[in-house]
Design a protein around this nucleic acid. Structure first.
Lengths: 155, 155
DNA sequence: GACACATTGTTGCCTTGACAATTATAACTT
DNA sequence: AAGTTATAATTGTCAAGGCAACAATGTGTC
């Protein structure tokens, strides 16, 4: 009775608001990426993926540094590192100059998994942007960067 | 010691990946909107805001319908409606033809709050897009809609 | 050196959202 | 009409993220 409503006009665009649109894309992207990872046999959630990717690309870094790099709460990052460490993809090493800090390093197993993941990642990203021309993709990323900067600027 | 790292090149763009960029924007947008609402004296979270906005704009609808409209889990939507009902912004009415369904309607207080919110909403959205030209804003929304459609299609 | 203050990582607490199971009602089939 | 299936809302459960409190260590000041 209450199912698929809105018989208004099928030709008209959904006309989503910006906030909802961004939220929906994030949800779908996370779902798509996690599905792609699972197909590849990689058991990682979105956040774990982001952290491992960052470490694999940028090399070892401190926990807080990593948290900022993937825009994650420091407390939550502790647990993400726990998970990655349990899976054997990451190692906590003491920091040379600062005994408060850590040096989070990717293990060999982590690197192997990362190379496995990279394919699934690219495939998902390609699928998301398949309806956009190369120029539009560049424009999209540029606009999004400017939106983010604006939001962060005015605080 | 481990603070603000990355002294590489200040002129170069951060070069975020698409998934992280979308996530960061969502986080900042939610934060900005909730801050703006709070400044306006409206005590609503992002999800509650989305639901009330949808109801205010589209009129009464069923719970499941509303959940789909704001891309929210049905179970979670039950609780959002609980919250909005507790605040007095929304009323659960029985559905005329279907005794399983509900008719979620905005109260007078809810409508007043919505008109209060609308300003904060527009201000936040304007702030987010302030660095984009009108043409770029249209292009951005269009690209995002296409990305969402692509993700949902191959889903 | 002693003190205040800042920073790093961790933990506890709370809220939120996703998913599965449940209940009540409707719709469909025979 | 009886039985089966589908749908609406709710509830329980669990993982994840944000925030505040905390202990350990570093930094700066007198």
């Amino acid at each position: 009775m209450c199912g698929m409503e809105k018989p208004s006009n099928p030709s008209e665009a959904p006309e989503h608001s910006f906030g909802l649109l961004i939220s929906m894309i994030r949800t779908e992207l996370v779902r798509a990426l996690e599905a792609a990872l699972q197909e590849e046999g990689v058991d990682l959630r979105f956040t774990q993926f982001l952290a491992l990717k960052r470490l694999a690309l940028d090399g070892p870094m401190c926990a807080g540094e990593l948290a900022r790099a993937v825009d994650h709460d420091a407390g939550a990052m502790t647990r993400v590192i726990d998970q990655l460490e349990t899976k054997g993809y990451v190692r906590r090493q003491p920091h040379e100059q600062d005994r408060r800090s850590l040096r989070i390093a990717v293990t060999d197993a982590g690197m192997a998994t990362w190379q496995h993941m990279a394919k699934a990642h690219e495939r998902t990203l390609e699928r998301a942007q398949q309806a956009l021309s190369p120029a539009e993709r560049v424009q999209l990323m540029d606009s999004l960067e400017r939106v983010l900067a604006a939001l962060r600027a005015t605080g």
